[in-house]
Amino acid sequence: MSNDAAPGAAAAAAGLTGTRTSRAAEAAGRGFFNFSLGLLILAVLWWLGGYLIARNPETQSFSGFGLVQTLQSFPELWNQGKLQKAIAASMYRLGGGLGIAIAIGIPIGIIMGRSKRFRDLSNSAFQFLRMISPLSWMPIAVFVFAAWDDSIIFLIAIASVWPVMFSTAAGLAKVDPAWFKVARNLGATPVQMLTQIILPAISFDIFTGIRLALGVAWVVLVPAELLGVTSGLGYAIKDARETLSYDHLTAMVLTIGIIGYTLDTLCALLIKRFSWHRGDA
């Protein structure tokens, strides 16, 4: 058998992989430097703002907003257990809402991607619902659900379901239809088609949708917690404002930023891990 796949080509491919690895390491190092520098600049600006506030006798009472006071308040909040409780309550609501959004959004997105009839029928209704501000559902949610927690979970779910759903549908619309034909030809059952062909094929789009949904959910969570509940990061901010504990307030805002950034980074890593598209890494 003649061969266009000479063994030397495997070595060439290995060499290519080596070059790619060193380039990736270089890019990662550059990325870390930029990341650190960006944060340093932000910290310096914050410190400078806090310093100017503290120096001015008229604004001195707001000096708790400064970087140093904020960082100093973390051990106190931790020792009192306020920080852990607030994070746990918020994460529970975020997880619940996002989980529901994913559980509903992915299957409906797949049906939308596979069935033109369903897509045509549902498009106007979904676009209409999508444009309703999530917080405007709050009075209805409070009326329908007995617990505040459930209301907030509902708000997060209704806000974050759309990116998951539309991203899944868009991902499926881009899939090469021949893959389904090949899989059927090789004997795939409908379940195998879903788990081994459809989901891996659109995993990049699903995780991109989840990443967008996470951003929306995180944005909705804090204002939702300002209304009614007595736990969570949003409530902790409101409580700190009412007790004039500005350092605690800023510490909670900083915590929201850190958690949001961490979750977003995790999503980005998942996208990278599951993406098979060349050039996404």
Binding site: D176, A178, W179, K181, V182, A183, N185, L186, G187, A188, T189, Q192, Q196, I197, P200, A201, S203, W276
Partner: peptide, 28 residues
């Protein structure tokens, strides 16, 4: 799987390695 078709393009599954692509039908 007793009568298998090869198409104009290979239509390999890009999230799978070569061996996984070859074994996908056996997996099914």
């Amino acid at each position: 799987s007793r009568w298998v078709m090869m198409f104009q393009a290979p239509h390999l599954f890009p999230w799978m390695k070569v061996s996984q692509n070859v074994g996908v039908g056996l997996g099914f």
